[in-house]
């Protein structure tokens, strides 16, 4: 498979995530869109991993595996982030009974 298709696919997913961040007001959905962006990256990394593996050939049988491990670490971090992020959202919800990010404008100028 041509790597460029993967690139385009990932970019498309990534940008959809960004558009989600731009257009949604619900903090949780914004957060989910960010997760979508991360997944786009993951997909791309895996594709690149296979590409480099193919390029390295037999000379280096483990070539490309570092990218897959990177994806693993991204998932780890994402999990940690989610726990913290959701805690923050819940805390805010407890105080304001809203998760609308447009309410977050006490701090400006």
């Amino acid at each position: 498979m041509d790597i460029r298709y993967y690139i385009f696919l990932s970019l498309a997913l990534f940008v959809i995530g960004i558009i989600g961040v731009l257009t949604r007001r619900n903090a949780i959905i914004v957060f989910m869109c960010i997760e979508l962006m991360l997944n786009a990256v993951n997909l791309l990394l895996v594709a690149f991993s296979k590409m480099h593996h193919l390029a390295a050939g037999a000379a280096n049988p483990t070539a490309g595996s570092e990218a897959q491990l990177f994806v693993f670490f991204i998932m780890v971090v994402a999990a940690a982030e989610v726990s913290v992020g959701l805690a923050i959202i819940v805390m805010l919800y407890r105080n304001t009974h809203s998760v609308d990010i447009n309410f977050l404008n006490r701090l400006k100028h």
Partner: peptide, 12 residues
């Protein structure tokens, strides 16, 4: 235009 290996390869 480089190829990504589909289906085969065992690093994963």
């Amino acid at each position: 235009s480089r190829m990504a290996q589909l289906g085969s390869g065992n690093i994963g």
